[in-house]
Structure formats: C-alpha cells, structure tokens
Design a protein around this nucleic acid. Structure first.
Length: 293
DNA sequence: AAGAACTCCAACCGCGGGGAA
DNA sequence: GTTCCCCGCGGTTGGAGTTCT
C-alpha cells in the first residue's frame, strides 16, 4: 500500500515555472511571510502547482538571498571537506555556504567538483606511481604557515602536523599525528620555516584565500579520502574528513571538530558558518590549533 | 551545417522523521 | 501507543544549452 500523493498530479501544472507563477509565489511569500503550510499555499496563492513544487521553487530559486554559480575555491574546499566528512548530507553542507542551496551544491558536486577531485586524484596517482621525474608536473605547494603545522599536545592529526609533501594531504591524510612522528614533524616545520625565511614574504598566520586556494588545488586529492575514491560505501565511524582524525575525535580529550579544523583552514570564514558544529568543551590547554588562538 | 554527444541544472519523486491529533 | 499529515531530504530525471565530430 503506497503513500497517498500529496496532490492530484493530473490537475496541477508541472515542469518549468513561468515568470507569472514565480511572481505569484513571490508576492504571496512577501505578503504573508514564512510559509507554515506549503500544501495549502498553492490554493491561497493562486498557483496551480503542487505544494512541494512551490516549496522547492521558493527554496531553490526565488529566495532573495540565493546565489547561483560562481563558486569560489574556498567554497569548493568546504564542499569537498564536508562531503568527505559527512557524505552526501547536502542540506548540512549547504547550510555552511551562505546563499547556497542543497540542490545547488548537490548539482555542483555531481557535475563539476567531483570530476575536478577525480582528475586531481588521477594526477596524484600518476605522480605517485611514476615518480616526479615522469609525472605530469604537480605544482609545488605554497609554503605552509608554521602555525598550521604545530601539533597540539592533546590532539592533532596529519591534517595539521606534517609538513612534508604528504603533509599536503591536509584534508585527510590517513596517518594521525603521534608523538613518535613529532620529531619528524618538527623537522618539517623547521624546513618550512627556513624556506619561508628565505622567501621575501613573511609567513602569514594563515594563507590568504588565494594562497589557500592554490594550496588546496595542489594538495593530494588522494588524501581527501573521497569515498568513491576508496570504494567505501559508508564512512566508518572512525574515519572522517581528516582521515584517522576520527579516532581522535572519539577521544574525549580531543576537542577538535570540523568546526575547529575548518576554522584553521578558513580563518576568514564567517563564524556563523560553523555555528552549529559544536565542539565538545576543550580542556584547558588543549586544542587542535593552539598556536592559532 | 547538422546531428551526436555531452554538460548542466531545475524539477520531480519517494521516503523517513517528527509533530499533532 | 498509533495513525495521519506535512516537511525536508537525497537520489534521479528530463530537457535546454553547448560542444564536438
């Protein structure tokens, strides 16, 4: 026994919306404010459409704050990282991108971003298997700011620790930070600091969006841990955006969450972007990016 | 120039969750 | 506790537009 249809599909119009229909819906919402009953709306607004269709049209197209197209590299990163972290929870991902809708983000991912990620994944694999001498050149990542790389005593991951080439697996290297690789990490840090000391530009506390973007472009997408790249149907509970970091998240001492991690990568993002990703209260002195605070 | 192939995205569909009765 | 109804979500589709051959 199936579910009763929400409306009489035979008697309502379907397909693309006309400007007149858009205006009817827009003016109704403008007059009456937030819609409490979408099923009743078509009759009240004089639109011969299914209520669900009206809701979708409003949410995805007519809302005044909607942005279409023109995704920035920062938004790409947010989408990739959140997709990696939580999967195809488009409404949640879209909620972190002001002006974007779940449908828009989903379409963007399916039509463009996924291909971009796959292309970079393939490029990385070629580079990995054939060596740098034969590989399609992958641009050298820009220097990572030392503050990125400072491991936290209480919690850290390769996402913010290692500074080697693999360290550019910043969105999901699979090896978590551990005390045993701290020395190596510090060596990498020193290397990066030296490199940057030699450079004219001093290390910024965070990369500018442009630097962050190019950095993201150059990072190993292999390490982004995209589920389709690793053949994972579901995300194991211990795996998340930052690879083995998930296990750290399960550690009650570890205060870090996507919010905090994201804040490391997108320091200029609006605070409310991450507002509903609540970290557990950090113990004193603990934190993923203590040097950044 | 024309048809095929591909890309993009608005819209549809069915399902699950949650609140009200 | 159960049923009903609506909302919101994620997956999928259809078709317009664009690029390729």
């Amino acid at each position: 026994m199936g579910r009763a249809p929400c409306c009489d599909k035979a008697s309502v119009k379907r397909g693309p919306w006309s400007p007149e229909e858009d205006e009817l819906l827009r003016s109704y919402v403008r007059t009456h404010g937030a819609v409490s009953n979408w099923i009743a709306l078509p009759h009240k607004a004089g639109v011969n459409r299914c209520g669900k269709s009206c809701r979708l049209r409003w949410l995805n197209y007519l809302r005044p704050d909607i942005k279409h197209g023109g995704y920035t590299e920062q938004e790409d990163l947010v989408i990739c990282s959140l997709y990696n972290s939580i999967g195809s929870r488009w409404s949640i991902i879209a909620s972190k991108l002001p002006g974007r809708t779940d449908n828009d983000v989903k379409n963007y991912w399916n039509t463009k971003l996924k291909k971009k990620a796959m292309a970079m994944h393939n490029q990385h694999h070629y580079h990995h298997h054939h060596g740098p001498g034969r590989a399609t050149p992958i641009a050298t990542p820009p220097p990572a700011p030392s503050s990125y790389m400072q491991p936290s005593p209480a919690s850290a991951s390769s996402a913010v620790t290692t500074a080697s080439g693999d360290a550019y697996s910043s969105f999901g290297a699979t090896t978590a930070y551990s005390p045993s690789n701290q020395a190596q990490t510090q060596a990498h840090l020193a290397h990066y600091n030296n490199v940057n000391a030699a450079a004219s530009a001093p290390l910024a506390e965070f990369p500018t969006p442009a630097v962050a973007s190019s950095w993201a472009i150059n990072m190993a997408f292999d390490d982004m841990f995209l589920p389709e790249l690793v053949g994972a149907g579901e995300f194991p509970s211990g795996e998340d955006l930052f690879g083995g970091f998930g296990t750290l998240l399960q550690d009650s001492r570890a205060p870090s969450t996507l919010q905090e991690l994201s804040a490391c990568y997108f320091p200029n993002a609006q605070a409310e972007m991450w507002a509903d990703v609540k970290p557990p209260p950090p113990p004193p002195g603990a934190g993923l990016c203590p040097s950044l605070t």
